[in-house]
Structure formats: structure tokens, C-alpha cells
């Protein structure tokens, strides 16, 4: 369960570059909810995810994940609740470390790092199995440095790392935006599988309206730091891109001007 109340964040406050990124966000998610998040550039989608992850402190409001008030917890202290995949494939993995070392780091999320072995033989076998399920042949390259993998492979690995130790919530921040269409589709499909198998509460930011409609049981649209649309259930199943654009224009009094969203 996720409860966000009246979340506010302003960047560069009291300067000429002042930018209100979150202007009072309220959101409640139930366990197992898979929400897609859309909106134009600067609408506050990634900012919301970063606020949940604790990348910086928020100005006001409250974030409760699974009964834990994380509002004032530092990023690494709330990491045990969260699995995260980022837009840039470089961000989610350590390039100079091996595939198995990256997985071993992720397997210890939420545990104190002690002087026990960084990776054990038994763990390796488990990772091999999980990598096999990705279907990318990574199970035979476990000691390869992650920096040698393609963007798609790195995103798939990051997904696996994010869910290796089951999180209370999965945050996907445009995690297929930097990939070519075929790889993006594959990574998205792997995401769906993992989310369904583990019944994970998920927020997925995307610029692709078709994906936003096709995936998940709920869709929210953000505009100028607020959630302006929240569509779920039957209504979401019957949604079309055209209907979504119409709704956006009605609610925001604005055209949805974003070439990436329209063309994709």
C-alpha cells in the first residue's frame, strides 16, 4: 500500500529558475496496483517517483509505503522497500562490476553490509536460474562486466536486480525510453511478467500512450505538478489514445503538446 498526501516540491526556490515540480500530489495505491503515469515534459512524473525514492527531501507532505512513513528517511534507508529502474540504462547497474556481482549487491538490499562473502556459490546458481528466465543468454556470461552489455540487456538486468529481493513497490521511470522499439517491447514484456508473477505494486512512467493504456490496471495523468486524471478498472480497459487526449484537453484546458507521446 502507498499513501501520498499533499506532496510538494519546488526546485531552486526564490531564484529566477524557480520551478514548482510537485504542487500537492495525493495518491493512494493498493497492493498489487500497477499504475501507468503519463503527462507532458515537466509535469512531475519522474519527480513523483524520485520523491518516493527519496533522492532529495520534499518540501512538505507525507509518503507512507506499506505502513512505514518514509518521508524523512534517507534514500538508502528506504531502499529496502523499493525496486527501481531508471531511464538511462547506465544508472541502474555498476558498469565496472560483473553481472553476478551486481546481482549480489541487489540481493543484499536492506541488509547491513558485513564482512561475510560478497557472493557465495549457492547464490550463483540461483542467479543463473533467474538470468535464464530473462531469455537473453546472460546466464552464460555471469562474470562479464556489465559495461559490455547492450542497453536492453542492462535494463533487463536492472529489472531483475530491482525485484531479486522482493520490494513493496516497483518504480519504473521511463525505463524503455532509451531503447530501440523491439528491445523496448521485450523489456516491457519482461517487466509485465515479473510484476504479475510477484503481484508487485508498481508505478510506471511512460511517454508512450499506447503502452500506458495497454499495461496495468490504472492510469494517472499529471500536469503542472498535479494528478489531473485517474482512470481505473473497466474504464481503463476501454480507453483509446484519442479519448485520452480529449480528456486531457478537457481537464487541463490545454492541448497535449508532446510529439513523443503523439507519434509513438
Amino acid at each position: 500500500m502507498l499513501d501520498i498526501t499533499n506532496l510538494r516540491k519546488t526546485f531552486n526556490a526564490r531564484t529566477v529558475n524557480e520551478k514548482v515540480a510537485l504542487a500537492g500530489v495525493n495518491l493512494h495505491l493498493d497492493d498489487g496496483d500497477f499504475v501507468t503515469v503519463i503527462g507532458g515534459n515537466g509535469a512531475g512524473k519522474s519527480t513523483t517517483l524520485n520523491a518516493i525514492a527519496g533522492v532529495w527531501p520534499v518540501d512538505s507532505g507525507k509518503i507512507v509505503i506499506d505502513g512505514t512513513d518514509v518521508t524523512n528517511l534517507s534514500e538508502h534507508k528506504r531502499a529496502f522497500l523499493l525496486g527501481r529502474v531508471f531511464q538511462d540504462p547506465m544508472t541502474g547497474t555498476a558498469a565496472s562490476m560483473q553481472i553476478e556481482e551486481n546481482l549480489a549487491l541487489a540481493a543484499r538490499r536492506g541488509q547491513p553490509r558485513t564482512l561475510r562473502p560478497g557472493i557465495t556459490r549457492a547464490e550463483r546458481e540461483g542467479y543463473r536460474e533467474k538470468l535464464r528466465m530473462l531469455g537473453l543468454g546472460l546466464e552464460d556470461r555471469m562474470t562479464t562486466k556489465v559495461g559490455l552489455l547492450s542497453g536492453g540487456q542492462r535494463q533487463a538486468l536492472t529489472l531483475l536486480m530491482a525485484t531479486l529481493k522482493q520490494p513493496k513497490m516497483l518504480l519504473l521511470d521511463e525505463h524503455t525510453a532509451a531503447l530501440d522499439p523491439r528491445t523496448a517491447a521485450k523489456v516491457l514484456e519482461i517487466s509485465r511478467q515479473i510484476i504479475e508473477e510477484n503481484h508487485l505494486m508498481t508505478m510506471m512512467v511512460t511517454h508512450n500512450m499506447r503502452d500506458a493504456i495497454a499495461y496495468g490496471n490504472r492510469l494517472i495523468m499529471m500536469h503542472e505538478g498535479r494528478i489531473i486524471l485517474d482512470i481505473r478498472g473497466e474504464e481503463k480497459k476501454n480507453l483509446t489514445v484519442e479519448a485520452l487526449l480529449e480528456q486531457f484537453a478537457r481537464v487541463s484546458g490545454d492541448e497535449f503538446v508532446n510529439d513523443r507521446a503523439l507519434l509513438s
Partner: peptide
């Protein structure tokens, strides 16, 4: 574990904190 965490910090800070 501790040494691996140290190496991860040098390799990718954002990822380390996320983990």
C-alpha cells in the same frame, strides 16, 4: 559484502543508494 559495497559506491553512486 562491505568491500563490494565500497566498489559499487565508486562505480555508480545512484545505483548504490538505490540498492
Amino acid at each position: 559484502e562491505m568491500g563490494a559495497a565500497l566498489r559499487a559506491t565508486g562505480a555508480n553512486e545512484a545505483m548504490s543508494r538505490a540498492q
